[in-house]
Amino acid sequence: MWPKEFDYVRASSVDDAIQQTSDNTDAKILAGGHSLLPAMKLRLSEPGKLVDISRLADLKGISANGTLSIGAMSTHAEIAASADVQQYCASLATACGMVGDHQVRNFGTLGGNIAHADPASDPPTVLVAAGATIHIKRSRGERSVSAEDFFIDLFTTDLEDGEVITRIEVPNLSGHKAAYVKMPHPASRYAIVGVAVILEMDGDTCKSARVAVGGATVSAMRASGAESALSGSSLDDAALNAAASAVQSDISDALMGDVSYPESYRQAMSGVYLKRAVKAALG
């Protein structure tokens, strides 16, 4: 409740933010503040300076031009309500609509969310399944990284000091069947397990599948064994059971549990929720 004393500046541009955080390792980027400020109030994080990028126009806005481009400072509420997101990747809208409560969704941003990389948060799982690309600006220019490679470990990403996420690019998945389902933690409502599936269908056959898991794992991650089990199948019970079994193997080295919901349970639930995700995707 009582953070350590810190300085606050509002960045005038993305470059300004990069400059200010490159010069000062004690500085942190402030986006919506809904992960960072609670940590500061608990004195788990004690940055000397916050560089606020939440109002930078360059980082806002959602557009759909072949691919979906989401400005990093778009709020969860904006994404959840966006017709473009609904059309291109509806399960991202679903996931953003599950984050926190109204106040959190109105302030929290997708860029801030993925930079924080809480393993139990919902949007990263969908971004990994969707094959999203994270665009990053730094003093030396710009770079991009796939969502799959971006999330590395618990609260750990590919992002380096002095870098700012500018936008998140998501392919047009409007022709796919997709879903994100989760088991919410009764206390925090974060995911005990969250599963995103994106299915490319050819009639009743699943031509290809992308599957990602979060909540149960130290970071959002692809589940390639489950993808193989689903791909080429008719998504019948045998295929779903095989995929449910495969997903548990896929994540077995990256499991994460807590005092109420241990790893073994989350692993088992990843299989259950994978099946539910496929069923939800097929409607």
Binding site: H185, P186, A187, S188, Y190, D258, V259
Partner: peptide
Amino acid sequence: SIYDDNGQLLTGSMMDYAV
């Protein structure tokens, strides 16, 4: 409430204590 063997309250916030 859940305590560990050292007597630490693990359900010390609403992240873990399910109201």
